[in-house]
Amino acid sequence: MKEITLRVFRYRPEAEAEPTFQEYAVPLRDDWAVLDALNYVKEEIDPTLSYRWSCRMGICGSCGMTVNGDPKLSCGTFLVDHAPGPITVEPLRNFPVIRDLVIEMTDFMQKLGAVQPWIIRDESDDDPDTELLQTPSEMDDYKRYSMCINCMLCYSACPVYGLDSKFIGPAAIALAQRYNLDSRDEGQEERLDVLSEDEGVWGCTFVGECTRACPKGVDPAGAIQRAKLIAANEAVKAFLLPRWVR
């Protein structure tokens, strides 16, 4: 069987001060993604290699890596598309590296929590026996943004986040919009407090790399532009109208 070379980023903080690259020859099979090749390395060649993965089918968002310079889900990036190789596999950019291909995601998790990505609603007037119905067009308003799997490829692709990690970032804003645009939600104002900060939507300079990187077609850049319009609208109202009218 033909082989292809994986050039894998290695960093073992207890053993080496600087990261290195290690090459592995793996079978070039038509149906193998980069993740399959890494699993082959781990099982057959080098059990010390560390990386995150779970579902192998583009749902869990765990296996994001930099493949030949681009942020990709390694389970959806096929070896044959990068033949004859070598294929360089590195951790996601813009995040601290814990070990090998494993990155530190605490910053992202905090940002995700800050936008309250769940339905905020005063349920005191809701009848517990009645469903909150939604029309298909009401669902279409937010459905695209609900496809986010928190894989952080957009953070890895975003040059603004790379320069200033205080920026709340593409996925958090897209998920805030997912709930803001939901007809059952009443939390837009609470989320706006976070989104309308200078490090919120205004940090974005509309480079658009997040949308190109997204493996689920979420279009975070579009979500950010829509959130900017809402934030700007509120800022103009706050500037022009007295408090009791708003």
Partner: peptide, 15 residues
């Protein structure tokens, strides 16, 4: 709104 925002960014972005 729960608090005042004084940033010029929204106005610059609108322009």
């Amino acid at each position: 709104m729960s608090r005042e925002r004084t940033s010029a960014e929204p106005f610059l972005w609108l322009l």
